[in-house]
Write a protein that binds this DNA or RNA. Structure first.
Length: 587
DNA sequence: GTAGGGTTAG
């Protein structure tokens, strides 16, 4: 008997359709005697109603592996992916389910959605135990799951141990690294994959597809490596991968994050494929971080005319644009419109941007009120209070700073930045006793330090500097150069903020002293190495926000050495030229 | 026959 179930399934759109089909399958005996069709049915059923599919599953007296797979997959894709794991365990416990490669694959997917790395390790051991370890598809899933649940080292290990590799697993590891904050390694692997790398694995020679270039471009964007990005973009055009919208969006993002707004805009305007909401959002954000606030707002208004309804990311991008351009009233208006219309509910990031926007312009009480206006459904996070604290430092508001600081302590936050800020605020008012208290507290609590680092691209090689770095091969020269820079800019009126900030903070902290902030080391290295070509700017990328002292130093260096310096910090660009910064000191 | 990889966000 030929049973054609697929076309029937495709016509099912409601629970009642499902029930009719179920009745049909039962009366014809298919449900009991053709388990493959039954599993297919259950699998489909989970997409209409998972509870109902589960109910059906429970009526089966001895479910086959495929039935288990269907129900595990359904749960893995649901809002509670962890349930898939318990179903899987039930199946194993009663020896009711003999897992196959698919069972492992779906359960692994559940681990990745539940960010359950330890559970992934468990399933990994099952993969070995049941003999599926040589399955390339399963290995790729494994690799991807490790990467997505934050165990990047395990992901790399799986990748390294694969005996057969194809484009998909290369893509998985490249994207995993790019998303996991290891863009330098992602780019290195991309080069190795295409046979463009150095050393081990040269000549692998896989042909990147649209997914590969998305990963590579995202890595370039994070590293701010526009030369590499350009190369990938040339490849994209040559291979006509730019018919793909997602590829175009990442190209725009890459140019934007590398400070090439005009190029980003050109790609945006020339897109051969349909633009999406994401394309607009990306472009608006790109204009914002490059300080082109009014153009960003113009585009924001234009997108509605083109039939796109702004979503929360659109609003966030527009608010950021206002923030980076000091367009305070415009931002406030936008935020009010957003909350009034009720079409887009503000989230923690919108509130965060507003606190930053108001705080930076000195409207501290309004910033504080924004935090207090946050509905109970949203839990304020540390970033919010850190932002307020930062503004308090700028405007010397001790009272509010103490409030913010107390909040941060309550929230169990323990990062060095806050302590330093509070100490700075006291120090600026010469309240040395309070400064001492903060420091004592800092030591007592063994404050975690978020390491600041900077990248600089010199002659095509990426050099990474960590605060207080002493590992670079040219360290001695670099430190000497920093000394030289400091002396030279003092002639231009530089007064280090260090004087009243971190003095006497202890030997260990000396490494963290302002003069050895990673961006200063990077710029020193840049000045050492590129003295012959003074027409090209020195580009530095930093993982954290640039500090006030470094900002001042960069301005003076750009003047003293007649050299343009572009620093991309965590949130935006600063172009230092002839003693001034493009952010007009608003940041 | 059923499985693996992708874009924007303080």
């Amino acid at each position: 008997m030929a049973i054609i179930i697929q076309p029937l399934l495709q016509k099912c759109t409601t629970l009642s359709h499902i029930q009719q089909l179920q009745a049909h399958l039962i009366t014809t005996g298919i449900f009991h005697f053709h388990p493959l069709h039954r599993s297919k049915f259950i699998d489909f059923c989970t997409t209409i109603s998972l509870p109902y599919a589960t109910q059906i599953f429970l009526t089966i007296s001895s479910p086959v592996t495929n039935d288990w797979n269907a129900i595990i997959r359904g749960n893995a894709q649901s809002l509670q992916p962890a349930k898939a794991l318990s179903v899987y365990r039930q199946g194993l416990r009663k020896l009711a389910c003999k897992p196959d490669a698919l069972t492992c694959s779906f359960t692994l997917k559940a681990c990745s959605r539940a960010l359950a790395c330890n559970e992934a390790v468990q399933i990994h051991s099952h993969v070995v135990k049941y003999g599926f370890v040589a399955d390339v598809l399963l290995q790729t899933t494994l690799l991807d799951v490790y990467a997505k649940s934050g165990c990047l080292d395990s992901a790399c290990k799986v990748f390294d141990e694969m005996s057969v590799r194809d484009v998909t697993c290369w893509n998985a590891i490249i994207i995993g690294l790019a998303h996991g904050n290891r863009p330098d390694e992602a780019l290195e692997l991309f080069k190795r994959m295409t046979g463009d790398g150095q050393g081990e694995g040269v000549g692998v020679g896989f042909k990147p597809n649209e997914i590969t270039v998305v990963g590579a471009l995202s890595a370039c964007a994070q590293l701010g490596m526009v030369q590499e990005g350009e190369k990938v973009y040339e490849y994209v055009r040559r291979e006509k991968l730019d018919v793909n919208e997602q590829v175009c969006n990442v190209v725009i993002d890459m140019f934007g994050k590398c400070g090439h707004v005009a190029k980003a805009y050109q790609v945006f305007n020339d897109m051969r494929c349909r633009k999406s909401l994401v394309s607009f959002n990306t472009m608006i954000m790109c204009l914002g971080i490059n300080g082109e606030g009014s153009e960003a707002i113009r585009l924001f208004n234009e997108m509605s005319k083109e039939g796109f309804r702004p979503d929360n990311v659109s609003y966030l991008s527009a608010l950021c644009a206002c923030n980076h351009s000091g367009m305070v009233d415009e931002g406030v208006k936008l935020f009010e419109a957003m909350t009034k219309d009720g079409l887009v509910a503000p989230n923690i990031k919108h509130y965060g941007t507003m606190v930053d926007l108001l705080g930076r312009s000195g409207r501290l009480n309004e910033a504080y009120n924004i935090i207090n206006s946050i509905p109970v459904t949203i839990t304020p996070d540390v970033v919010l209070w850190q932002t307020l604290l930062g503004a308090c430092k700028t405007y010397g508001n001790i009272e509010l700073a103490e409030k913010a600081s107390r909040k941060l302590v309550e929230m169990g936050s323990n990062s060095d930045g806050e302590f330093v800020l509070l100490s700075n605020i006291y120090a600026a008012q010469r309240r040395w006793k309070d400064v001492g208290e903060v420091r004592k507290n800092m030591k007592y609590k063994q404050v975690k330090k978020v390491p600041g680092f900077s990248y600089i691209d010199v002659k095509g090689a990426i050099h990474k500097f960590v605060n207080g770095d002493r590992w670079h091969t040219h360290m001695e020269e670099i430190y000497n150069k920093v000394e030289e820079i400091m002396c030279r800019i003092m002639e231009h009126g530089y007064v280090p903020e260090t004087d009243y900030v971190l003095h006497d903070i202890g030997v260990e902290e000396k490494e963290n002293a302002l003069s050895y902030h990673s961006e200063k080391l990077a710029v020193a290295f840049g000045l050492m190495n590129e003295e012959e070509d003074i027409s090209s700017p020195i580009r530095v990328n930093k993982n954290l926000r640039i500090c006030g002292d470094c900002h001042e130093v960069m301005k003076l260096v750009s003047k003293a050495y007649e050299r343009e310096i572009i620093v991309r910090d965590r949130t935006r660009f600063h172009r230092f030229k002839n003693g001034l910064c493009s952010c007009k000191d608003f940041w």
